[in-house]
Simulated scan of single mutants.
Amino acid sequence: MQEIVYLHGFASSSRSEKAVLTEQYFQAIPKVRFRALDLPYTPNEAMATLEIMLAEPPLAIIGSSLGGFLATVFAERLGCRACLINPAVAPHKVLKNYLGSYDHPVLQQRYQVSAEHMPLLKALMPESLQNASQYFVLLQTGDEVLDYRDAVQYYQGANVQLVTGGDHSFVGYQHYLPQIAQFCLQA
């Protein structure tokens, strides 16, 4: 059984629209186990959770936004494929604008985003990609949260699909699921 793992973005969960659509799509594919993980929001806790959950490397990791950043960190460590949807390239630069207290919608926990988390996120960021061909990156130019040009630059050499318009949620995501599955399931 081949495993595909989905990592949600900041202030999201395994029950987000993208996660649910992805789960429904992969359920129809034989011999594939799909898991959408709910991650803690502090960098150390998220990394500890992922190290346990990904002890057996998956075939591929799908990550959206902050989940795309974490998918990159683990794809680099594990050598697996990663499909990224509007990924955060340098989350320490973006999240510094979101300091404060939040509620996790599924875990039913309150969490803090603090300035102390920013150096931890920066330290996790791979300086460069070891094998750009293991990445499929979906970007929309209308992303109002992240500058898509940062991802275009960082993921040079990867299979990057740049879509004009859209927004951070990646409008029309469900139409890209066949491409995502094809990329993830390549041997």
Rank of each mutant, 00 (worst) to 15 (best):
V32K: 10
F74R: 02
V106E: 11
P119M: 09
V89C: 01
P43H: 02
A115S: 14
C80A: 04
M47V: 11
A46K: 10
P178V: 01
S12A: 07
P87E: 04
P58G: 01
Q112S: 13
D167N: 15
L185I: 02
L59C: 12
L66T: 07
A71I: 02
D103N: 14
I4L: 01
H175V: 12
Y176I: 02
A123C: 04
A11P: 12
E51A: 01
P126N: 07
L177C: 08
L177K: 15
A48Y: 03
S114R: 15
Q156I: 05
P57G: 05
F74Y: 02
Y98C: 11
E144Q: 15
E76L: 00
V106N: 08
G79R: 07
L70A: 07
A48H: 10
L7M: 02
I85N: 09
K93T: 15
P126G: 03
L95K: 11
H8T: 01
Y98R: 13
E56S: 13
L7F: 00
T72C: 00
E116Q: 15
S169D: 15
A187Q: 14
H8I: 01
H175W: 12
S12I: 01
E127A: 12
V89K: 13
E51D: 05
G79F: 00
Y6S: 03
R77K: 14
L120N: 09
G68L: 02
Q179G: 12
Y111W: 10
G9T: 06
M53D: 10
L121Q: 11
P126T: 03
A181V: 03
P91T: 06
T42M: 06
A11H: 15
F34C: 08
E116N: 13
T72G: 00
H104F: 02
K31S: 14
Q153C: 11
S128Q: 13
F136L: 13
G9C: 00
Y41W: 13
P91R: 15
L21M: 10
L139C: 08
A132F: 02
L54H: 08
P57N: 05
